[in-house]
Design a protein around this nucleic acid. Sequence first.
DNA 1: CTGAAAGCGCTTACAG
DNA 2: CTGAAAGCGCTTACAG
Lengths: 386, 386
Amino acid sequence: MQKTPAIEQPPTIYDVAQAAGVSIASVSRVLNSHGNPRQETKNRVLRAVAELGFVPDGAARALSARVKEIVGVVFRHVPRADSHEAADGAATEEDESLQFTDLINRGIEVAAQQGGFNLLIGSVDVHGHDARRQVMTMARKCDGVILHDRVLEPEELAQLSRQVPVVTLAGVATDATANVRSDGRSGMGELARHLIHDHGYPTVAYLAGHADSPDNLARRQSLTEETARAGATFVDGPRWQGNYLASGGANAVRNLLAENATLPRAIACANDQTALGVMTQLASAGIDVPGEIAVTGFDDIPVARHLRPQLTTVRQPIHELGAAAFDVLRSMITDRGQHGHEPAERDLVLPTVLVRRQSCGCRAGPETAALTDTVTMASADAEGGT
Amino acid sequence: MQKTPAIEQPPTIYDVAQAAGVSIASVSRVLNSHGNPRQETKNRVLRAVAELGFVPDGAARALSARVKEIVGVVFRHVPRADSHEAADGAATEEDESLQFTDLINRGIEVAAQQGGFNLLIGSVDVHGHDARRQVMTMARKCDGVILHDRVLEPEELAQLSRQVPVVTLAGVATDATANVRSDGRSGMGELARHLIHDHGYPTVAYLAGHADSPDNLARRQSLTEETARAGATFVDGPRWQGNYLASGGANAVRNLLAENATLPRAIACANDQTALGVMTQLASAGIDVPGEIAVTGFDDIPVARHLRPQLTTVRQPIHELGAAAFDVLRSMITDRGQHGHEPAERDLVLPTVLVRRQSCGCRAGPETAALTDTVTMASADAEGGT
DNA sequence: CTGAAAGCGCTTACAG
DNA sequence: CTGAAAGCGCTTACAG
């Protein structure tokens, strides 16, 4: 029969003003460092604020200051097959973590916090017939929005960007929206050369991500070009279609194996999660990685180095991508409405780096392998490495 | 010399009213389904809304309706050692993903979205001398707050909870705050019995999480009891102190190995990330898991099944924990201010489940191991499994 | 059923 | 330097 203690109405600026014996205008001024309040006034206000534990209401502040100090982040949500706690133990295939997305969001959050902003997070369903409304509603709670890959159709995006500043991630910049991405081509090119020249693999397959993702296309394209240039055989096609999830990679390999297809010497995956699924599937089929088939990823999420063998991959500056997205958005927010104002960079691209570990066929480092990745700057011409 | 198209001021309710030829009150009514507007009125309003692309401003709505439809989520943030892009390739140890936290947040988000709420996310620094202010500021942008483990000191928590509904995660319920956690004791007990009875391991160590985390204490306690009861040797102590991160597990093992300590036959880790670090470190020392040393985790994050060997662990209903936290919070929000109202459950505890995979010494499943975990309900007495 | 008006809790010109 | 007042964009009694 325990009772909940009622929550008191938080104090308002009027309470503070009264306690301090000044006007609400003065309270507002000392709290926001506007004008030059007398020291005496400051003291009285600050004391009252401390005593009452006053913190201004966000909505009221936002309404009158016309700034919410909130940025929205929207990502695409893989629907759960609503099998509560999958009692049979077989995890639903959709029940995956989108680590890359979460890590980017961390990057955004850190930058935002530094800038005095908070993050409003929302995900939209793939079958999002009302994705637009969801995003719109969110947008009206924010000063600007960052959109992950494939959240909105181009027309929806255009409409949204008419009302609020928008930055897309791994998309393409438009008239009204900025975009932040990483230079997948250079990293993938470097990876391809490594596989073909350094390891001498004759055939390389690309286990793709979402077909409509610009990142995916750039990576494939780069791989295609490099293999062609080197005279190696490039393998892809409908059987090699993944979905950026471990299950996508696992399924593709399982099917390939089931139909007794001849597998290539190396499989370059669209991202690390896909590589994870591929490696798991190959292992349970008794195929040695990298001995029989080399496998590589893309992203360099934290678990990559903890896989066995450790995953060779192309590192994206994940944290920095998020931070950059926030910075760009923030400048758009600041400049908003200022016609003809010189815009910030509209298509920011960050460099990627090849990280050679073991799954490509490189030998393990001499000591604690986990701490001695061999990294080469994608743009450097030196061969690098220990 | 490209110019940014200026962002138009989004239309207000006045614009809609004018376009529809009605009062703003009527617009509000049809949009919120209050009263019984005539069909004619509805039509005119809806048409105007569609034409103008009107979506109500969140701040204004919040201020007057006294509901923001936002819940805050705060977690503790491991500070980055600000080494931008760690050019030497050695990832900073702190640069870890807190997958468990992110997954819980996903669970919260899904439930919140269903309830028409959005998530406001913020992290506080470990050295958070101003953690309180950060959280307070966030709280004033929300209708209620969910706090992950170890975000606020008890007094700070008490103060916060006086102004806004608060739910803690993996903490303890207080007079004014509710708590959601999982039943770590039962899952860990089951795990201990499995290691000792089924596998016959004589010595089991506990590689701990944060010393001040209730979850950590419950898990250790349960392990201690079970080993004592079975006459096995329990190993712990300062050398076995981890921090819930892979680096914590790796460091502990590295130090133990460096001083030539005799390792126990089995290491039960406080969570999966710790187990990840432990397994990586053991592998690079050439120690076979589970042949020489068995290793287990806790949480069952998605990568657990992708490790080699696949990780035996105790599954927490991660998604459900998040969803439950939201549900509890939401009911507190609804009831707020209603003195003496019968409160919802104040300390919700969800069941855990042992997931037997390979790292404990169980053999791999007959087919695609990834899809055939052997799961036993923690509370069930049947032995279950195939 | 509908409109005019008050009010939500702040910030910010505008006078003094 | 400081206070009274207007206004941010909504929702909701209150009259009609």
